[in-house]
């Protein structure tokens, strides 16, 4: 009952964020015109282009990426049984940023850059999961391998920064902070491809409920923990990889949203996963809208907003939480 109310509340939050993103932004238009453009999809003119080619794709991307990062955060926290786990813990972001920086250096942009970046993500996923599989997928091995790969990739990135031109470094850093401002053609299609995978995650709520108790306990309750861990980690890492490739490294969504939602719904993943998706999507749409209007007509990288909001929330959460919940 209470969990149903939380779901409804978050649904309203998501819809409100969508509405806000639709009616405000870098360019200001009267709400009437936006409404007209929305319900007459064929209409030309500035409002039509703005709504159908800029704002709606952007809202869609921010929503899906936010939902995906939050859901993956839940998955990683459950499997690694670590409250500090997030989608980037296994080093996906390191590989992704190396791919992106190499693409920028080679002067590759648009969708090919997305693909190179995704290749980087897959490289780090493969290395980390491969290394961990040698040690029976133990959590400490996964986390250590992820951290080491992140360091390795970021030192290569820093090496490239040291020798690259300042213009390239600047555009790389902007990319690293995450943004939805210029999604290359094909992005929406790529997101549509991970959408089914993401929508499958709620069906693994039982596996997550058991895995978050521990590996032995999962076996005792009839779940092949090693197999479940493998396919969930692989799925969540690939989803994260697509998000990183499309929008850069958006900080904190995958860490903070799961904690915030868990505070409202409790630990049962049957409600935690879908509620985190709603909250993550709404939060990222809201942050993206703020990033467009705070220093209008310029635009902030959305990662700056999520990092600040997320960091602030996390401090409050840590101060308020009882020790048992932080542990």
């Amino acid at each position: 009952m209470k969990q149903g109310l939380v779901f409804l509340f978050l649904l309203v939050f998501l819809l409100a964020s969508v509405a806000l993103g639709l009616f405000t932004g870098g360019m200001q238009l009267p709400p009437g015109e936006i409404l007209r453009a929305l319900f007459h999809s064929g209409s030309d003119g500035i409002a039509g282009t703005l709504v159908w080619e800029l704002r709606l794709p952007r809202i869609f991307m921010a929503g899906i990426v936010g939902a995906a990062l939050a859901a993956c955060g839940v998955v990683f926290q459950a499997i690694l049984r670590n409250p500090l786990a997030e989608p980037y813990t296994l080093g996906v972001s390191g590989g992704g940023s190396l791919g992106a920086v190499i693409a920028i250096l080679l002067g590759i942009s648009g969708f090919p850059m997305v693909l190179i970046c995704f290749a980087g993500c897959c490289l780090s996923i493969g290395t980390v999961l491969g290394a961990a599989s040698l040690k029976g997928f133990s959590n400490s091995m996964l986390i250590l391998a992820g951290i080491i790969m992140s360091f390795l990739f970021s030192s290569v990135v820093m090496f490239i920064f040291a020798v690259a031109s300042s213009r390239e470094v600047h555009s790389s850093i902007l990319w690293l902070m995450g943004s939805f401002s210029a999604p290359p053609a094909g992005s929406v299609k790529m997101l549509l491809m991970i959408l089914p995978v993401m929508l499958c995650l709620p069906f693994f709520s039982r596996d997550l409920n058991l895995l978050c108790l521990g590996e032995d306990e999962s076996y005792h309750l009839g779940l092949d923990a090693k197999r479940a861990k493998t396919y969930l980690l692989l799925g969540a890492s690939l989803i994260t990889g697509v998000c990183v490739a499309l929008s850069g490294i958006i900080a904190f969504v995958g860490l903070v949203i799961p904690h915030a939602v868990r505070g409202m719904t409790g630990a049962d993943h049957h409600t935690l996963v879908p509620c985190s998706m709603l909250a993550g999507g709404g939060f990222l749409i809201l942050s993206d809208t703020l990033s467009q209007i705070i220093i209008r007509p310029l635009e902030l990288p959305v990662g700056v907003i999520t990092g600040m909001a997320g960091g602030l929330f996390f401090v409050i959460y840590l101060l308020k939480a009882r020790p048992a919940e932080v542990s």
Binding site: L210, L213, L221, A324
Partner: peptide, 17 residues
């Protein structure tokens, strides 16, 4: 320390099999 399940949620995990 286990995850913040309620007692009833935690016990009901035993019905999964």
């Amino acid at each position: 320390a286990p995850p913040p399940f309620t007692v009833e949620e935690f016990v009901s995990l035993g019905r999964y099999p």
